[in-house]
Design a protein around this nucleic acid. Structure first.
Length: 269
DNA sequence: AGGAGGATGTGCT
DNA sequence: GCACATCCTCCTA
């Protein structure tokens, strides 16, 4: 389709559909350190994935997944989650945010990995523009002197402050906005073939599995309480782009009562 | 037909 | 820390 693009980083290869055939719980940590590359309306952005969450369809065994859009079965909204792995399930959150999932599990089985946060690796000005940072400084000399003396500037991204750079794709709403993918027009786009959909192309690139990553309860899921919460969130330890943790509705009390930490997480590997 | 409640981010107190 | 934006989906009557 598109002319074969160069890998967005060393040691990366395009994801194959069979890479995503396993259940979300298995696929999710493998997406840490992977890249999502999008071209929307001719603008390319590459995101290095730093935080993900697994969402199963009906759940595992007799335990339903209280956070999954597919927990009640197949509907028009969640149809993409039930389809072929490797497509992107893009849904609207709170009427405002377009959030991006990588569909996994075999065709006919609902499953997805929510891309919760990432680091913008290339296309920083475009991502900043989409994030509404109109005051982003250009790399050209006209704007540079303004902040050159004031603000410590990240080495490879002189056009943006470190804080703004960190926050560009920190959280699923921001990640979706930075990527340029939007609900509903890009829901179902194929990140394996890279076939265009509504003016957009998406590609998933995989690296070697991380030797070490962190695990904890998912963020903001109502009905997952305290220590009973599914530890289905995965992130890169210490990465500044990982979003802050918060319990879902009604779960904070249960968490406190059971004596679990404020920001739960352990490093298993 | 109506309404509650989001896999959230932002801005103000 | 807390309210609110904003709109879609699904559950209930």
């Amino acid at each position: 389709m598109t002319a074969v693009p160069p890998p967005p980083g060393e040691g990366l290869r395009r994801a194959r559909r069979e890479d995503l055939l396993a259940l979300p719980l298995e696929v999710a940590p493998r997406l840490l350190g992977a890249r999502l590359r999008t071209v929307v309306d001719g603008t390319a952005v590459t995101l290095r994935i730093t935080e993900v969450e697994a969402y199963h369809g009906k759940g595992v065994g007799d335990r339903p997944d209280p956070g999954s859009h597919a927990r009640m079965g197949r509907t028009a909204r969640n149809a993409t989650m039930w389809g072929e792995p490797g497509h992107l399930y893009v849904y609207l959150s709170h009427g405002i945010h377009s959030c991006v999932n990588v569909v996994c599990a075999p065709d006919g089985v609902a499953g997805g990995v929510l891309l919760r946060a990432g680091a913008v690796e290339s296309g920083v000005p475009a991502a900043a523009e989409r994030r509404g940072l109109g005051s982003v400084l250009r790399t050209d000399s006209a704007a540079a002197p303004e902040s050159a003396g004031k603000t410590p500037i990240a080495g490879i991204h002189p056009e943006i402050r470190p804080r703004e750079l960190r926050d560009l794709a920190r959280g699923p709403g921001r990640f979706g906005q930075a990527s340029g993918l939007r609900h509903p027009q890009h829901d179902g786009i194929d990140a394996i073939t890279g076939v265009a959909r509504a003016g957009a192309v998406a590609e998933l690139w995989l690296g070697e599995p991380l030797a070490e990553f962190a695990v904890g309860p998912r963020v903001g899921v109502a009905g997952q309480a305290g220590t009973d919460a599914f530890p289905w969130r995965f992130w890169i330890p210490g990465d500044p782009t990982v979003s802050p943790f918060r319990w879902g509705r009604g779960a904070a009390e249960a968490a406190r009562a059971s004596g679990s930490a404020d920001t739960p997480g352990v490093d298993p590997c």
